[in-house]
């Protein structure tokens, strides 16, 4: 318990350093653009691929499991949309990204720590925590909502693909269900949740990477711990945010 509290204290004190005034805004902006590319743009492919297939699979599963003469066929489209908007494209996609991006951040910072690159920044008089972590948090909070949009669209295309190529139901019926009783607020809920998840992924993974003490084994451990804790916190935050936003 004491160890956990000490970790929380170290995390808060690291974040205090991260949100200090940058030494040179231009350099931070350059770093921010680099992180947008590395963490965000490089994740578009995996997000599209996963969303496309999951969109198709959700449609097939729902079609097979709720088939009943009492249930209109367009319900499949309606349920698919709600799942994509409310949970899959925000929470589940962020869980997947926590694995990809979180381990990337933790191992990058951990390697910088063990190879003394962070010490080199400190000796130059640079706030290394802020220079290395702030652009990552900013970039992820910018890119993850964009990835959520990409995921929603790819999921819907996947749902249509299951109609066009597998022929599980007419695409027009699916389309009717997708448009049925559309609530715009649900899209905003996904965005709002993804902002929080982005902060969790970037800050928690950075904490584990930045505070590595030791060698390559510790870097690997930090990377795993970052993914596990980010995922747990995303699930917990999802529960709280869903209750707050929709309860």
């Amino acid at each position: 318990m004491l160890k956990a509290l000490a970790s929380v204290g170290r995390y808060v004190s690291l974040m205090w350093r991260v949100f200090a005034r940058p030494e040179r805004y231009g350099m931070y902006f350059k770093q921010y653009l680099k992180e947008l590319q590395q963490l965000g743009v490089n994740s578009i492919g995996i997000v599209l691929l996963i969303s496309l297939f999951i969109g198709a699979v959700i449609t097939i599963q729902i079609k097979l499991n709720i088939e009943s003469p009492w249930m209109p066929k367009w319900t499949v489209g309606y349920v698919t949309r709600e799942i994509l908007l409310l949970e899959f494209s925000s929470a589940i996609m962020c869980l997947i990204l926590a694995g990809k991006i979180g381990s990337n951040i933790a191992s990058e910072l951990g390697t910088m720590r063990v190879t003394q690159q962070i010490d080199a920044l400190e000796i130059m008089g640079i706030n290394s925590a802020s220079y290395l972590i702030l652009p990552k948090i900013g970039a992820l909070m910018t890119m993850i909502p964009v990835l959520v949009i990409f995921s929603i669209f790819a999921g819907i295309i996947g749902a249509f693909a299951s109609c066009w190529f597998i022929g599980i139901m007419p695409a027009t019926v699916l389309e009717y269900g997708l448009q049925y009783m559309f609530v715009e607020w649900y899209v905003w809920c996904g965005f709002i949740k993804s902002f929080f998840f982005a902060f969790i992924i970037a800050s928690v993974s950075s904490y584990f990477g930045y505070t590595v003490d030791g060698g390559s084994i510790e870097v690997g451990k930090a990377s795993t711990d970052a993914v596990v804790l980010s995922s747990v916190l995303i699930l917990f935050a999802d529960l709280v945010l869903t209750q707050l936003l929709m309860g």
Partner: peptide, 28 residues
């Protein structure tokens, strides 16, 4: 006013040699 040469050189992996040398100049 300090310069430091580390045991492991501690060069920034993501930067070229020129960018590494320019880095303190870019910053300060």
């Amino acid at each position: 006013e300090m310069g430091m040469l580390f045991q492991s050189a501690a060069l920034f992996d993501s930067m070229t040699v020129l960018e590494n040398v320019m880095f303190p100049l870019d910053m300060f």
